[in-house]
Design a protein around this nucleic acid. Structure first.
Lengths: 232, 232
DNA sequence: GCCGTTTCTTGATCTCGATCAAGCCCTTGG
DNA sequence: CCAAGGGCTTGATCGAGATCAAGAAACGGC
């Protein structure tokens, strides 16, 4: 079981170029754990003892303030989270919970920092990864500040369609309330915004979305790589 | 003139620990330029040819979409910007303009990447800096999603007071319209929110702010290091 | 298969914030 | 000194989104 995970982790850009010896060392000290759904893995404010890797399942990153809560991101296999806190040895800024049964790999932060110090390829990969994380949050921030909720939803749907392979019909990956929270809106509002997007050829039935005319929706959504492209 | 700047730059965490030789190399290939106010230094979407350092003056980072514009951050001496784009060799996600007469140091991105590859101390510093940038954007995002505009303003004022040394009276560093845009609100709304904060002991006259009772304002603002602390 | 829970939806209402418009004040340049 | 322009404030109105409430649909557990 562990060996299967090794491959997946090794294939991540973050671990792909590092020395085999150092990779093995990290795997040796790693904890492999399976969690049921709805388990809070970490809480914001706690010291960052582990770098987390989602080997299987799905994890939600969220934050609280003054009895309000918001979803910051969803992490899917194979992805990592809390890299920045690990690097800086600072408290977590977000909490994390499993959304479904998930297999999580925990790398002790101090070991990650130790390998970082002696493995240049790994150090480079950490920098590249962090820069990517930074840019994706900047994009999320632009999305929030420059667009209305319906515009955010339209672009979200276009992106989901791409990730699903481009077919006119596809399934939403998470419940709508989480999508709403991620997009900075209420579930009620999401419902209404979906009806609004019907005017631009978007049909929804449960979690199944059908985009009749992509061009039509695109004209409304006005996507730009400087906000919507996950890679660059 | 240049030598004076050297010290300021060298004192930055980003450049402080690197080899003197490599630092000198970077300074040798750097461009030192003074710009008048309101000059657009870079535009989002352009390739990232230079890492920028604000040696003197003030620079606004902003973004546009669909005829809307928002202020993302203000960079003050001595601070850098566009580090993530430089590292990834990816297009700028934000534009930048001078707000006042500013002296800017431009480091060619490829030289920065070259030094990064051979100087471990610099590489480590880049990672630390990027992690800090990432965390500050996450905080900004939480601020936007979890708070109302008046709550954001109250916390902004508390932070400004700290940065000004803690005295009851202090001056705002930029025009209110920029503050409004940074906080994700309109100038009109900022004006009204300031009046609202009067109920909690905040007085404003032009750019001069007086906080009569910090505890009172704090009870309303409910600041938390997980959103408002710039350092951690 | 049924019950209880939770999510989703829809409608009504309200609040926050945006927009539009006008007047004031300050700065800047002639 | 005056005129022009821009930033700031204030009021009125509008619109987006939040909240409250209730019913419908989906899901999970026994």
């Amino acid at each position: 079981m562990k060996e299967k995970d090794f491959e997946g982790i090794r294939s991540l850009p973050l671990f792909h170029e590092m020395e085999e010896e150092n990779f093995q060392e990290l795997m040796r000290v790693a904890y492999f754990q399976t969690f049921p759904p709805q388990i809070e893995l970490i809480s914001e404010g706690e010291p960052s003892d582990f770098l987390h890797i989602v080997a299987d399942g799905m994890v939600e990153l969220f934050s609280n303030w003054n009895n309000r809560e918001t979803t910051m991101a969803i992490v899917r296999p194979v992805g990592t989270f809390i890299l920045a806190a690990t690097v800086r040895d600072a408290p977590y800024l977000m909490s994390a919970r499993t959304l479904e049964k998930s297999r999580i790999v925990l790398l002790p932060s101090q070991d990650v920092r130790a390998v970082f110090d002696k493995d240049n390829a790994f150090a480079r990969a950490v920098v590249t990864e962090l820069a990517a994380c930074y840019r994706s949050v900047i994009k999320a921030s632009k999305n929030l500040k420059l667009r209305t909720s319906t515009e955010r939803l339209a672009n979200y749907m276009l992106r989901r369609q791409e990730l699903a392979g481009g077919a006119p019909s596809f399934e939403l990956p998470i419940e709508k309330r989480k999508i709403a929270s991620q997009l900075g809106m209420t579930p009620e509002n999401l419902s209404r915004a979906l009806r609004t997007l019907g005017e631009y050829g978007l049909e929804i039935d449960g979690l199944k979305v059908t985009i009749a005319d992509r061009d039509d929706l695109t004209r409304f959504a006005k996507p730009t790589p400087l906000i919507d492209d996950p890679g660059t």
